[in-house]
Write a protein that binds this DNA or RNA. Structure first.
Lengths: 145, 145
DNA sequence: CGAAGTAGCTTGCACAATGCAAGTGAAAAT
DNA sequence: ATTTTCACTTGCATTGTGCAAGCTACTTCG
């Protein structure tokens, strides 16, 4: 264990490849979705998701996403066992990517959550602004829900 | 090998999960990038990409992407050895997803191809329209380049 | 025509990633 | 003090990935 290698060495300098190397697996984007849309912020909350990620995979992905600067973990001052995970500016900036992926699937696959898809379709900019606004609120005070 | 199971069974009905199950790996989106931006259309051309995909992985991904309806393979009438791979409407419709992933990496990572990023930033809609236009041209006649 | 080359794979095998169940240690609740 | 909760870690079986080599159908060259 211990320190990471300083430069993990990319396969190429292509920006799409950079995104794929950080996000191209079966779990990372779902974790980010839960943080962005459901407001999940603890290990337990991520485990509660529909897709049932294994604990070792979740721990690994949270570590990697933190190393990439997409999220940050802080100890909960009210409960010393808990870690609070929060999206960084880089993380919340993935909202357009997630949105386009949801819209694409909505156009070409039979999926649930048609209500969300419709909200995104009707006014994408407004939707993205709301996501960002909610995230900024949680910077100062705890979740409104 | 034989027939695929009729329904591969999704982990959840979430539209993002559908996208992740089809595209969430280290190669699929890069193959689609090569088709969309470089006009790659044969096995050989895909192998020539910077990231050096292995032949067995490439064959597997092309098969899966075809099964998902993202691309289609046709025998080249001029050379019976060649297969010509083409994006379907569902495939070309991934352009906004790729674009947002490129833009995100461009904003937060040091990458090459800044020229492409600048074109996308200046006028996203125009860029997307051009991608689609080039794809529609290739429907009737061969690549302009 | 036959020999050589090309395109698109498949196979074998080593290694890495994933998934499940069970266990651990620190903090909190009772 | 004991039990419960939280965030993991460990062990192990299964699955996916990556490399090198081989294979087969088709084309080209002489």
């Amino acid at each position: 264990m211990g320190l990471r290698k300083s430069a993990p060495k990319r396969r190429s300098g292509c920006p799409l490849n950079a995104s794929v190397e950080m996000l191209g697996d079966r779990w990372s984007l779902l974790i980010i979705r839960d943080m962005m849309l459901l407001g999940s912020k603890t290990f337990k909350e991520f485990l509660g998701s529909y897709e049932h990620i294994a604990t070792n995979i979740l721990a690994d992905r949270l570590r990697k996403l933190e190393a990439y600067g997409i999220l940050r973990a802080k100890r909960d001052p009210a409960d010393g066992r808990k870690l609070i995970y929060k999206l960084t500016p880089k993380g919340i900036d993935l909202a357009p990517v997630l949105t386009e992926m949801v819209l694409w699937a909505g156009r070409h696959e039979k999926t649930k959550n048609q209500a969300l898809i419709r909200v995104m379709q009707r006014n994408k900019q407004k939707f993205l602004a709301q996501i960002r606004q909610r995230w900024e609120q949680n910077k100062t005070r705890m979740s409104a829900r």
